[in-house]
Each structure stands twice: as C-alpha cells, then as structure tokens.
Simulated assay, not measured.
Amino acid sequence: MFFIIITLQLVYCLMDFNPIHQTSSQEQHWISLQNKLDSTKAVNPKQEYKEYSYNPNFISDFKAYKLGMTLPQINRLRAFRELNKFANSPEEFQAVTGISDSLLEAMAPNFKFPDWVNNPRSSSYPKSKWKEFPKKETLKILDINQASKEDLMKVFGIGDAISDRILKQKEIFGGFVSMDQMTDIWGLTPEVIAEIDKYFIIESLTKIKKININTASIKELGQFYYFKYPISKNIVTYRSMNGDIKIEDLSNIKGFPVDKLKIIALYLEF
C-alpha cells in the first residue's frame, strides 16, 4: 500500500496533465504577418505623415480632437462660429478656444487664414467692377392739381394705369379740392394713398370752377360728379320751396350725399 501511494505521487508530480494545444495554419499565418510588422517597425520606428495647411475656424471636431484639443475647447470654437465670427490670428484662436501655449505652438504652423486677413487693403475685385446703384430721387411736395403723369408715377405703387385714372378724375372735377378725393379713385389702396399724401397737397382752390347751386338747372347740376338726376331734382325742388340754399341747408335735401358734404361744398357757390 505504501509503495502504491509513493508511485502515484511521483506520477502526479512528473506528468503534464495540460491539454496539448495545436497551432492551426491560420494562427501560424497571422504570427508570420506580425513578425513582418515588428521587423518593419524596427527598421522605420516612426512613420512621418505630411501635414496640410487649414483654416482653424473650419477644423472638424475629429481633427481637432486628434490634434489634442479637448471637448470643451472644441465646443467653444463651435459656439464662436455659430455667432458668425472668425478668429483671424493664432492668438485669437487661442483666446477663443483656451488651448495651451504648447498646443498652439504645435498647431499654428499649419494655420492658413484668408488673404484679406493678411492684406486687408487689397481687394480681389477692381474698383471699376463694383456696381454703383443710382440714388433714390428725392420727391418734392407738389400741388396735386399741377402734377404730371411722370410726377405721379414717381410715387411707389402708382403705375401707368392708376396715374391715368388720377388725371382723368382731376379732369372730371376740374381739379381736386381735397386729398380725401383719392379714396374715390378705383385701384388706390390705403397704403398708396398714404404715399400720395406725403408728396402732394392742395395749394389753392382759385382755379376750381364752381357751380352756383341757386341758379343751376337740373341738367347743369346733374353734370356734377356727386349729383345724379334724383339729387339734382331734389335740390331744385328744395330751393323753389324754401328760397336760396345756404351751406347749412344741404344736409336737409333728400338724398344728398352727406358723407361728402365738406368736399361738395367746396365746388358750390351760394
């Protein structure tokens, strides 16, 4: 028994019970490739890469990180660019990003800023190339009754057709007595009327041909823009029954356009 125990212990100590590992052909291939790489590194311990110039304002996050910039520094540069601002020198780039002096010294040799940064007085475009736009003509304030077609068309919003309507309306009245009459012209918007009021006024009414409301016949009254046959007839009837019409009597005449009374009165004689 003692002899058996001693024999088993010797076998346990002397025998290798680990599984035998057989190297496959694929593993042998990779090992040989690794050996070639190691030998190449031994011959060329450091491979040099050519650095290209770049505008640091447009550096990508990946390249910035690869060059050694931290995430907060990259975020500061991005926020600066979102404000549509540019760093125009290595010093400004450092002030914006907060990179260290050593990192700036490593990066700055490859910085490339636009030519106009280095030569602010130079321009790639000859002076003669720049187009000079004519200055907007300053309109003088004119009497609307003296305005020509060209004068009217200088106002923003008045074209060929509307200017003709204004002149036609002036011809019908024999002249305007109030700028409020622009509202009677078809096609004039409130915005355009406001522009007309900036440049035209009524200076004098002396040349306006007036109608004598106490002597004019129904036919003569009917030729006036604001009077149609029924109103003209009511005017003649009213004065035949009440005598001469005064300005304060106009609102008592049946059918009289009271909303235009102030304008109509300026065309009448009493």
Rank of each mutant, 00 (worst) to 15 (best):
A64R: 08
A64Q: 05
A64N: 05
Y65I: 01
Y65R: 10
Y65C: 02
K66W: 07
K66C: 02
K66L: 08
L67C: 07
G68C: 04
G68R: 07
G68S: 06
G68I: 05
M69S: 00
T70V: 01
T70I: 02
L71F: 12
L71I: 12
L71C: 05
L71N: 09
L71V: 11
L71R: 12
L71W: 10
P72C: 05
P72S: 04
Q73E: 13
Q73Y: 06
Q73D: 06
Q73H: 06
I74M: 12
I74P: 09
I74A: 07
I74N: 07
R76K: 14
R76P: 06
R76M: 10
L77K: 12
L77D: 11
L77R: 12
L77E: 10
R78D: 11
R78S: 12
R78G: 09
A79Y: 13
A79L: 15
A79I: 13
F80I: 11
F80A: 09
F80W: 12
F80M: 10
R81G: 11
R81S: 14
R81Q: 14
R81F: 12
R81N: 14
E82I: 10
E82H: 11
E82R: 14
E82A: 12
L83V: 13
L83W: 13
L83K: 15
L83P: 13
N84D: 15
K85V: 10
K85A: 13
K85R: 15
F86P: 03
F86A: 09
F86H: 10
A87K: 13
N88M: 15
N88V: 15
S89E: 10
S89Y: 11
E91V: 14
E91W: 13
E91T: 14
E92T: 14
E92M: 15
F93R: 09
F93W: 14
F93E: 08
Q94L: 09
Q94H: 07
Q94D: 06
A95R: 11
A95W: 05
V96L: 09
V96W: 07
T97G: 08
T97D: 09
T97Y: 09
G98N: 07
I99Y: 05
I99P: 06
S100N: 02
S100F: 02
S100H: 04
S100L: 03
D101A: 02
D101L: 02
D101M: 03
S102H: 01
S102V: 03
S102W: 01
S102Y: 01
S102F: 01
S102Q: 04
L103W: 01
L103H: 01
L104I: 04
L104R: 08
E105D: 01
E105F: 02
A106I: 00
A106Y: 04
A106N: 02
A106E: 01
A106F: 03
A106Q: 03
M107F: 02
M107P: 03
A108Q: 03
A108P: 00
A108D: 00
P109W: 04
P109G: 04
P109F: 06
P109T: 04
P109N: 04
P109Q: 06
N110Q: 06
N110C: 04
F111W: 06
K112M: 05
K112C: 02
K112P: 00
